[in-house]
């Protein structure tokens, strides 16, 4: 189980990334949020999100991880598992 403080830091960073990618400033990230809930979230944006997450947390997502991503919660879990430095 991820520490709640870490969870909060991850969601804050992800919110920042989603706002940049979708050129908005009002994204509300919930674990269940997925591509069908956000206008414009296509495969192109999906790659933008992944590469941004990799750069932001200095991690590399492997092919299986990428394939298993269904929603924001999945992404936050991968980050929590892999990222060394969440600050």
């Amino acid at each position: 189980m991820t520490h709640p403080a870490n969870q909060e830091a991850i969601y804050a960073a992800l919110t920042e990334i989603f706002n940049e990618v979708f050129m908005r400033d009002d994204m509300q990230l919930q674990p269940a949020l997925g591509a069908k809930d956000v206008p414009g979230w296509d495969s192109f944006k999906q790659i933008e999100i992944m590469v941004s997450v990799e750069e932001r947390f200095n991690i590399k997502l492997n092919t299986r991880e990428i394939d298993s991503l269904r929603c924001v919660g999945d992404l936050a879990d991968v980050v929590a598992r892999k990222a060394q430095n969440l600050a």
């Binding site: 790659i47 590469v51 990799e54 092919t63």
Partner: peptide
């Protein structure tokens, strides 16, 4: 390589 398999992008978006 992962992005090549996923999206056939030879040049990484980064």
């Amino acid at each position: 390589t992962a992005l090549w398999h996923r999206a056939k992008q030879e040049v990484s978006p980064a």
